[in-house]
């Protein structure tokens, strides 16, 4: 199975609108999923320009964009991708 890459947008808009609170994912994800998931804080992904700041912070979990991202929402999306709970 391919490794899942999670990108937390650290652009000004996302950071102000709540990505600051997502930084704990940097600790949670490696300890929870080991090398199955890679997490990065990245410069502005431009989602706020395409959509609006109202739905920031944005997080990309592989090819899925999580709007109004929270720690729980991101973890849920990762687990869906990993196929947890589908057996």
């Amino acid at each position: 199975m391919n490794k899942i890459t999670v990108k937390i947008c650290m652009g000004t808009t996302c950071f102000v609108m709540g990505a600051s609170q997502l930084q704990e994912l940097m600790d949670i994800i490696p300890s929870k999923y080991g090398d199955k998931v890679e997490i990065q804080g990245v410069p502005c992904l431009e989602f706020c320009n395409v959509n609006t700041e109202s739905n920031a912070p944005y997080v990309a979990v592989a090819d899925t964009i999580v709007k109004n991202a929270t720690v729980d929402k991101v973890l849920e999306t990762i687990e869906r991708k990993l196929g947890y709970g589908q057996e």
């Binding site: 652009g11 808009t13 102000v16 410069p43 700041e53």
Partner: peptide, 14 residues
């Protein structure tokens, strides 16, 4: 201040 930067589309770190 954060809202001001958002409204002006300023990327502080760049």
């Amino acid at each position: 201040m954060g809202a001001l930067f958002i409204a002006n589309k300023i990327e502080v770190s760049e």
